[in-house]
Design a protein around this nucleic acid. Structure first.
Lengths: 166, 166
DNA sequence: TCAATACCCGACTATTTTAGTGGGTTAAAT
DNA sequence: ATTTAACCCACTAAAATAGTCGGGTATTGA
């Protein structure tokens, strides 16, 4: 399970989608404007989300994307995995080439951890995130309005992302 | 909270350290050999781990590194954070520049998720990982011995890491 | 019909991060 | 003294990330 800004973009976009899909499909350009993510980049992400059946698309004017599952059935974990295209071949679980029990042990230990992270993220649904309405209070606390500092990067705790116009 | 192979290297090395620090400090070259991580790269990681006081160093012959905390007090989360050097300035929590409640809302929602991931990783100790002795069974299952496939990359579930000689 | 919308797709680029090298300095033990 | 190993740069190659460009194709509403 990899966790980078790519995944954050995907989750952010899916949240936006969830919030706005009440009346018909949502266009990427709308998400692009609201969340300030480049349109073409969104297209790339949504191509993957579509391939993994997390979203469905409607072409033509008035078209856009819709969630392909109920928000409560859509886990954050699968969104992140979807956009991270992990072609894990020749990995250690199954059979591989790490010699000696020593090294393999640490690998197993790490894998154990990785499994737990995956499980954790798979148990958090979009719905659950959306219902976090204590967020409103957070919004209130933050001076989140017109502090226009140009290249200011918004970020999430310790997730390192430099120079993002977000 | 970023989660990449860098963090895996760090946790792996710290696990190795924990397992071998019974009798004195452990040298990086020993870890390098056992875990097959380049020495110089380990040096970079341990420089950070030392700055954040997670390990202590002893110079000279017979020197090396020791854990600076008991394994049960050392969380996986802090190890990963330590090597990821997040200089998060101008972020949204506190005050920032995202205009309008719309965008800020999604940010807050994501932050909420990020916090939960952090909390989760901070609750997992090295000790706890080390005690996962069902791992032995895993080691048994895996044909983890001399399947020398040259550039074979070991990996952890969906954590994408290409061409690692690990 | 036809033009606007918006998905679709691939190649291409810049920046950043990752991982690893090399060369040297300092400290301590034999 | 010599060796060992931490320490500390600066530099590099490769990869991933984020974004651009330019062309499609399908759908719809005027």
């Amino acid at each position: 399970m990899k966790l980078t800004s790519r995944g954050r973009y995907a989750v952010t976009a899916m949240l936006d989608l969830a919030f706005h899909s009440k009346n018909g499909p949502v266009s990427l350009s709308a998400i692009s404007e609201r969340q300030n993510i480049s349109l073409s980049y969104l297209e790339q992400l949504f191509a993957k989300l579509r391939r993994t059946k997390l979203v469905a698309s409607v072409r033509g004017p008035g078209g856009g994307y819709t969630l392909n599952k109920e928000p409560q059935l859509l886990s954050v974990g699968e969104i992140i995995e979807a956009v991270n295209e992990n072609i894990d071949a020749t990995k250690c679980h199954g059979k591989s080439d790490c010699q000696g029990g020593e090294r393999c042990l640490t690998h197993s230990l790490w894998q154990n951890l990785s499994d737990r992270i995956s499980d954790f993220l798979n148990q958090i649904s979009l719905q659950e995130l959306m219902q976090k309405r204590d967020v409103k209070e957070v919004v209130g606390r933050q001076s989140c309005f017109k502090t226009a500092s140009k290249d200011g990067s918004i970020d999430v705790l310790q997730m390192l992302v430099t120079k993002e116009n977000l």
